[in-house]
């Protein structure tokens, strides 16, 4: 029930053409505006579904875009602007989760998998080579290899 109400009333923009950033929001300084756009892409629109505030035309997203620009005008660095928003809404607003204990698996998982996979593959190949050596195959001479390659190429 609660979810339904929230869904209908707060997130009036589900998948609507997201004509988000309006001309009246934009900063006169192009460099600062570009920074604002970059920061906006890092911030999640809270009432939308996985859109950044840069992509969403929800009213709250617009308010946050204006806030980001105000902070930049006040002289904040990019990190300070992000911290300003995170202080109010928590890590949830960051589309790039901060690196900390609870996101360790997220950030290191892919590289751990690559590493484990590489080790596994290495062991597998080494094991196979042991078998190969046991099978008593003399290494091919350069000439033999060339001929074999030619044969294989022809065959496929």
């Amino acid at each position: 029930m609660k979810r339904v109400l929230l869904a209908t009333l707060l997130a009036l923009s589900t998948l609507s053409p997201a004509l988000a950033v309006q001309p009246d929001e934009m900063l006169p300084d192009p460099a600062m505006e570009a920074r604002a756009r970059d920061i906006s892409q890092e911030l999640r629109c809270l009432v939308c579904q996985n859109q950044s505030i840069d992509d969403s035309n929800a009213p709250l997203a617009r308010d946050l875009r204006l806030l980001v620009r105000d902070r930049l005008k006040a002289g904040d660095s990019d990190d300070k602007v992000l911290a300003f928003v995170t202080d109010r809404y928590g890590d949830y607003v960051l589309l790039r989760p901060p690196f900390k204990a609870t996101t360790l698996v997220l950030w290191l998982g892919p590289f751990a998998i690559l590493l484990l996979g590489a080790i596994g593959t290495f062991l597998f190949l080494r094991g196979r080579r042991g078998v190969a050596a046991g099978a008593d195959t003399a290494p091919l001479s350069a000439d033999e290899r060339r001929r074999l390659d030619a044969l294989l190429r022809k065959d496929e």
């Binding site: 929230l6 707060l10 809270l46 009432v47 709250l60 946050l64 806030l67 109010r88 809404y89 928590g90």
Partner: peptide, 9 residues
């Protein structure tokens, strides 16, 4: 309201 962390009413 943003200071309060409001995201919906």
């Amino acid at each position: 309201s943003i200071d309060w962390g409001v995201y919906g009413v």
